[in-house]
């Protein structure tokens, strides 16, 4: 179990997490659902070690041991699709490139630059890069924004097949429906509903 215990975090005067606790299953797909601005992204950032809480602790997941998909694609305009994948793979795993291109359904786009990709393609590339990086868990912030529902469903199944816990924040009904656990949240400060 990945466990957040009594987490408090604020941005300036705004309290986003106030003694918040949550247990997340250590396998399968877990969705965090809630209105925009309720604190889902902050929660994911705390899990990923990208935001340091004032109080409380995360158990079951060390800092820098998870792969994080940011809400924005954060692609590098000067790197090709293929390079985005190989950039996160160690030399010994470079041969996996075609596997991750297939994961993102971007076969044939290996040499394309981000400027030539549609919004959905860019999102799939960002997701594939995150999955290729790997780790003890995947923390995904709106992974299927701009991705058509059929592709999103197929990619969710591929994510499940990776065998690592996946925690994702999403607004999309079909995505939530395909997850094993859905945790409904509201805030700020963040709380379960």
């Amino acid at each position: 179990m990945i466990s957040l215990q009594n987490i408090t975090l604020r941005y300036g005067e705004k309290v986003v997490l106030d003694g918040f606790s949550l247990d997340i299953p250590e396998e399968g797909l877990t969705a965090l659902s809630g209105p925009s601005g309720c604190g889902k992204t902050t929660l994911l950032r705390v899990l990923g070690g990208l935001a340091r809480p004032e109080r409380g602790k995360v158990e079951g997941l060390g800092p820098a041991r998870a792969a994080f998909l940011f809400q924005e694609d954060r692609l590098l305009p000067w790197r090709t699709v293929g390079q985005h994948i190989t950039d996160v793979l160690p030399r010994s795993r470079r041969a996996e490139l075609s596997r991750w291109l297939a994961f993102a359904e971007l076969e044939g786009e290996e040499h394309a630059y981000p400027a030539a990709l549609s919004g959905g393609m860019a999102r799939r590339l960002a997701l594939a890069r995150c999955a290729a990086l790997g780790g003890d868990a995947l923390l995904l912030d709106e992974p299927f924004a701009g991705v058509d529902p059929q592709r999103a469903a197929r990619m969710l199944e591929r994510l499940r097949g990776l065998g690592v816990p996946v925690v994702l924040a999403s607004h999309q009904g079909p995505v939530l429906a395909a997850c094993d656990v859905v945790i409904r949240l509201d805030g700020p400060p963040l709380h379960r509903v």
Binding site: G48, L50, A64, A67, F68, F70, E72, R74, L76, D87, V88, R129, L133
Partner: peptide, 12 residues
Amino acid sequence: GKLLELARAYRF
């Protein structure tokens, strides 16, 4: 700064 954060998060 977001790209630099990406580099840190992706253990570059």
